[in-house]
Design a protein around this nucleic acid. Structure first.
Length: 372
DNA sequence: CAAACCGGGATCTGCCATTTAA
DNA sequence: TTAAATGGCAGATCCCGGTTTG
């Protein structure tokens, strides 16, 4: 029943809008910049609807003002659609607030896109939770055909269902990239492999993507800069670089260039200061590249903590996984081990590379040997 | 049995700049 | 000329446990 009111409303808004553009057409050429405040008016029934839906209009307007001047929008259709997929009222409101353009999509379009996502996600809830996290990932592109091609393309890489699921859960933007962009990254990786004398470029690209699910939402420029930096600063041979990237090094490729560089430099200094030269540095990074993932301050604190606890840098180089744990965690373990007089020189440090549970169990045994 | 290996889970969006379409 | 579409950027680890190996 409210619909005819809305139609009237919209009609008048439409007329108003037309009048306004007509006026503008006349005056705009005279003062092209001055009157940008008086462009098309906002659609009032739209504002009303959004308020009813609980949308943060201020936020939405700030993000995509153009949407508010559209004559036809589908906010109610969108809300109904999302709710039918299990989204709560507040989720819908939050989605529209953060990515207003979503309300310009038709029901047919939404349904089609949703079904395409369902190729990878088994349940509607999964998709809803991703939309909640990142509405932009779903709504930014209106090109469903491109999305379909992306799915085909990603599958053709040899990524299995599980990989694909993880990839798109973690980096849903990948879906909304143009096929061309995704293809460029894959081809770039394949080229790197061939340049390094590798024989299986497709396998290489697949490995890198599955090891670093963020890679496809990064620029080739960024990835290239990181690869170049690693190669140059560690003086890597082709095969060394290939192994590194195909293995654990992939995880590090998406770091921002400056961040990687800074962390590298800082680590280099730190190593020097404790008497470890280039060889040690290279060994550490080759076997445990994610060491570069940790910011300089955090890493230095962590290393100091270990060194102060009676562990040598050489031991860390041999068992870099101990760096996986937080300084907090390490400190606690060191304290407990100290209390029972654990000797790292004698027993090694692998005990530090244990989950809470396993560590406690181990400690128990050390404190109360079961020999009676 | 312990040690070593290995991969995965949580989470990673929201903004700005540029290009393209209408 | 506006709005839509798209690309790109900064931000910055820790923990767990199944499986294999010794």
């Amino acid at each position: 029943m409210a619909s005819w009111v809305k139609v009237l409303h919209r009609t008048s808004t439409l007329q108003q809008a037309l009048k306004c553009t007509a006026l503008q057409a006349r005056f705009c050429s005279v003062t092209p910049k001055e009157n940008d405040k008086s462009l098309k008016p906002e659609n009032e029934s739209l504002l009303e609807n959004l308020n009813l839906l609980g949308v943060d209009v201020k936020m939405a307007r700030q993000r995509q003002p153009g949407v508010f001047r559209k004559i036809f929008t589908n906010e109610q259709g969108l809300a109904g659609f999302l709710q039918s997929k299990g989204a709560s009222r507040s989720t819908v409101a939050s989605i529209i607030s953060r990515y207003p353009r979503a309300i310009t999509r038709s029901l047919e379009h939404l349904e089609q896109r949703w079904q395409l996502w369902r190729n990878v996600f088994q349940k509607d809830e999964e998709i809803v939770s991703i939309l909640e996290r990142s509405p932009e990932s779903f709504f930014r592109s209106s090109d469903n055909e491109n999305l379909e091609k992306n799915i085909t393309f990603l599958s053709s890489l040899g990524l299995n269902k599980k990989h694909l699921h993880r990839l798109l859960t973690t980096a849903p933007r990948t879906f909304s990239n143009s096929l061309e962009l995704n293809r460029q990254m894959v081809e770039f990786l394949e080229d790197i492999c061939v340049e390094m004398g590798g024989n299986h470029p497709e396998q290489f690209a697949k490995d890198v993507v599955s090891r670093n699910v963020y890679i496809l939402i990064r620029s080739t420029k960024r990835v290239k800069a990181n690869i170049d930096h690693l190669r140059a600063s560690l003086k890597l041979s082709d095969s060394e670089l290939l192994d590194l990237l195909q293995g654990p090094g992939a995880e590090i490729l998406d770091l921002s260039n400056e961040y990687l560089k800074n962390n590298f430099t800082s680590l280099q200094q730190k190593m020097r200061s404790v008497g470890c030269g280039k060889v040690g540095l290279k060994k550490l990074i080759m076997s445990y590249p994610v060491v570069l993932y940790t910011g300089a301050a955090t890493l230095n604190t962590k290393l100091d903590c270990l060194l102060k606890g009676g562990i040598t840098m050489q031991q860390i180089l041999d068992k870099p996984k101990v760096l996986d744990y937080s300084t907090h965690n390490i400190t606690a373990k060191l304290e407990e081990l100290h209390r029972i007089g654990f000797d790292f020189q004698e027993n090694g440090i692998h005990i530090l590379d244990l989950s809470r549970k396993r560590f406690e169990a181990k400690l128990e045994k050390l404190s109360f040997p079961p020999h009676d």
